[in-house]
Structure formats: C-alpha cells, structure tokens
Amino acid sequence: MSAGQETLQKTAVTPAGGLKPRHKRLLWIIFGLVFIAAIVALILNAFGSSITYFYSPTEVVQDKVPHGRAFRIGGMVEGGSLVRDANGLTVHFRVTDTAKAVPVVYTGILPDLFSENKGVVAQGKLDEHGVFQATQVLAKHDENYVAPEAAAAMDAAHKARVAETVKE
C-alpha cells in the first residue's frame, strides 16, 4: 500500500514515455483497480465452489440440506451400527446427534480414530434414498477430542430435545 504510494509519487515527479503525470497516475489507479477486481473475483469464485456447509443429522432428517451438493455432517457413530461389506472396503454406519441418525456409506480406509460411540465428521452428498454417500471421513487426533462440529451438533440436539419435552 505505502510502497504503491511511493512509486506513485515518484512517477509523478519523473514523467516518462510521453505521458503526463496526471495520466500516468490514472493509469496506476486503473491498474490497481483491475488487480484488486481480479483478486476479488478469484476469491469469490473459489469460495463459491469449495465452501462446504455443516449440518447436524437432525437437520438432514428434516430435509434442511442442499440436494446435489456436498456438505458435512457430524455427530457420533451410533453404537452397533457399523457394518462392513463383504468386499471389506465399503462400510455402513449411522451418524447420530443423539436425537436423530443418518445412514452413511463410505468406501475406503477409515481414519485411525474412527470407532463406534466416537465423534466423527463426514463429507459427501445425500442420495435419493436418504443415504449419505461419504467421500471423506474425518476423526481427529486425540482420544478425548470431540470435533467442534460434532459437539455443536449434539448440543443443538440437546436443546431441541429439551424443547420438545417442554412442549409435551
């Protein structure tokens, strides 16, 4: 910023190439604006295509999630829900926020810390049968650690459940 200003003043003092200082300054400003516009366009374009939103299993069940677009879900792997296909690489499990649960299918090697009753975050798309086709499964590096997203989903589920009991 400041250096741009420096050069700006200097070029104003030493006109070159037959351009008047005023025109030269204008040229710099236009150049700067184009540069900024290009950067902003670059960022917006990248953001548009690569931000993944996070939803809780309850929201998935209530159909508040985008269709045909990847998103993340988080919660706990429901106890006793982990089933492995005969080929050994495809796994089925359910992710729960203690209120609702979503079936998930994933093919590939699961992270070290993936296990039942542990926090998990999965990225993927929801298919027409309401099954979450995961492309990526994340479990974090510490035994006591609950992914913040997973924790938030469970908190929200608590709130919702408590609200329900009050209504009843």
Binding site: T98, N117, N144, V146
Partner: peptide
Amino acid sequence: ADGRVGIDYGVYGV
C-alpha cells in the same frame, strides 16, 4: 463404560 450417559449429559471432557 461406553460413555453413553456422558453423551446424554453433553460431557465435553473429564
């Protein structure tokens, strides 16, 4: 042992 009640109580850590 399996932490189910802990989940019900929203236990973050011990």
